[in-house]
Nucleic acid binder design. Structure first.
Lengths: 209, 209
DNA sequence: TGTACATCAGTGAACGCGCGTTCACTGATGTAC
DNA sequence: TGTACATCAGTGAACGCGCGTTCACTGATGTAC
């Protein structure tokens, strides 16, 4: 349904060719429409128009497929965190990254939750580890700038703590937001309102000018 | 009657009397032994020694039972956050609360995760909302002290942001810890090591003396 | 160039599993008299 | 005080469901010659 015919006629029943892409797209669609609970190998197969056994056959199991999707999620997140530095102080940049992190979580809640559901992922998946590391590196880069560290010297303990502090703040906020723990204390404020009003104040509290 | 030493004979097959308690204990045991995935109504019933339909009958469904357990979890968390103030500055108290929060998550990971799994809980459960509010109030109390606010004046926006900033930091750290996102960046450091070494540095970064 | 063949990605029907729930029931309990 | 009865918490066998996986298979593809 999704792809224009490439080399072959459209049903592509055998040697699909784009099966990997098709199943990743199907998974993303499921995550977007019904969250993590909406996903199953069978459902993804149905959307991709392949047999129920195809996903397990191709990816070796649910964790294989989900890890691919999570890795792409981390890559997108890293892109989101790659903020334009022009004219911004490191602190401003850090706050902007925080906004980006939470916005990513709010825009793709299913994918975001997947990315941190250890029990659903293949911990040995190389792309997943790498993509996660690259997203974290974006935060680290800003912390380095803020502490006037060059990019080649190793992080001291306090700087490393600052990286994880930054990650913890935005990650915690994102989770509380998605779990509905912020809304009911703000009289049913919408997600957008929480991000636009509460989050900047939180980031300013943690990283004042 | 004469054969029963207490009010109830011990097998208690009908009108169990302690069914609520027994099922909560069973759920806690499942969460402790195998995490959230280990829980099912049937398994809880088996451990409690009752019929498979009993939990749904008593609690109206899985969400009812899980919400009770989550509410008790929030009550325990609030207790953990009720740190002894003697001789501590508000900032020191805040850091100590942060340690308590993360330690709670690390000691009871299954229960902690349950407490924030919106889709598993009954959002209308009164005890759950209340217990959650009480845990948050412990953080709020310390923020008030730190900002020299009396306990009766309403929180201004910046103070409220400070409360959520505090919650976000410790909540994010706890989640990252449980999801294994901190460990693999510290060469497989144990949970205890991360709590004892990394966490204090993170808290000091956010709330320096 | 055409043909034979090995490879292997994907098929599709079937299987077994654990799940929450159903439903007619049972029997302990509290209350009325 | 004892008896009759309504209540309803919990029973336990059975049901249907969606799941991941199995397994013998099929047919598109690349390669050897």
């Amino acid at each position: 349904m999704s792809k224009a015919p490439r080399k072959k006629a459209q049903p592509d029943r055998y040697h699909h060719g784009d099966l990997r892409i098709a199943l990743i797209a199907a998974t993303d669609r499921l995550l977007a429409s019904g969250g993590l609970e909406a996903f199953s190998l069978r459902e993804a197969a149905k959307i991709a128009g392949v047999s129920p056994a195809a996903p397990a056959h191709h990816f070796g199991g649910a964790a294989g497929l989900l890890s691919e999707v999570a890795a792409l999620g981390f890559a997108d997140l890293a892109k989101e965190l790659r903020v334009d530095a022009a004219g911004l102080s490191p602190t401003q940049r850090l706050r902007r990254q925080g906004m980006g992190y939470v916005r990513f979580a709010a825009n793709y809640p299913g994918r975001f939750q997947l990315m941190f559901r250890r029990e659903l992922l293949d911990e040995a998946h190389e792309g997943l580890q790498q993509a996660g590391g690259e997203a974290l590196a974006e935060l680290e880069r800003t912390i380095r700038a803020r502490r006037a560290l060059s990019s080649d010297e190793p992080l001291d303990g306090a700087s490393r703590a600052a990286v994880f502090a930054a990650w913890s703040v935005v990650h915690g906020f994102a989770h509380l937001l998605l779990d509905g723990k912020l809304g009911h204390l703000h009289h049913g404020a919408s997600t957008d309102a929480l991000i636009d009003r509460l989050l900047p104040a939180v980031l300013l509290d943690v990283w004042p000018d």
